[in-house]
Design a protein around this nucleic acid. Structure first.
Lengths: 120, 120
DNA sequence: TCAAAGCATAGACTATACTCTATGCTTGTA
DNA sequence: TACAAGCATAGAGTATAGTCTATGCTTTGA
């Protein structure tokens, strides 16, 4: 598919998709059978990849982190073991982030208590 | 205390503290008994407040969001009920963020499965 | 007492992640 | 076939959150 379809199907603007592509998060391919233009083709599998990028960004991962993860994940040179290590490292990061969220939640709950006791 | 002590005790640089103060996250007071300078005094209670700012930032809250929350929380004009509402709203946001984290975690776990099955 | 360290304000600079504009070529449709 | 819409690259502009520099006054300690 071309970039505008990718944009429609992922909900990410064409501009942003181009930015991501230049950043190195994914790559479209020039269709070599067509010589009159240099339009890029984007693979069906990118839809899922871009959904992951969106979600990862929303939970605060930087593009740089996402890039590193994707590069490991889809690197055919990398051993299965190394890929799993990269993914597991991210899962551990997520777990510690969740812990941090719970800590802030606790602070806010304590804040509610303080307000109820007229301490604020 | 003066700003450098506040910096040491919170681990936030003097520059960043000034940035936060100008942003409106908290306020130091000029000591009116001293007329030779305009050094600002920072209250002991700010330490906890700044810890909260740090944690909230680390979990992805913007300074603008943090400002709004603190303004409600420590606004003496605001009713107890409204304060609790503001705090509860943030707690709900945190819960939905945690859900989102778990969703990304699930994606990564599925990624590990795919790698193990040779799908990547 | 005088120099270093600390305080204040103001403004310039940086990084990240977009977002938009300009320009030019290609494609598709009335 | 003409012209709007789509594609591409390049580069400028924006918002957030710092981070740093300049300047000048004040305090403190050898």
């Amino acid at each position: 598919m071309l970039i505008s379809e990718l944009s429609k199907r992922t909900g990410v603007s064409v501009h942003t998709l181009r930015y991501y592509e230049n950043y190195g998060l994914f790559k479209g391919e020039n269709n070599k059978t067509v010589k009159t233009n240099n339009y890029k083709q984007y693979d069906e599998s990118l839809i899922e990849k871009i959904q992951l990028i969106k979600e990862a960004k929303e939970i605060g991962f930087t593009l740089s982190e996402i890039k590193d993860l994707l590069e490991d994940w889809f690197n055919h040179q990398l051993s299965e073991e190394k890929k799993i290590q990269a993914l597991e490292a991210k899962i551990i990061e997520i777990d510690s982030k969740i812990t941090q969220f719970k800590r802030v939640k606790k602070m806010l709950i304590e804040g509610i208590q303080d307000v109820k006791e007229g301490k604020c």
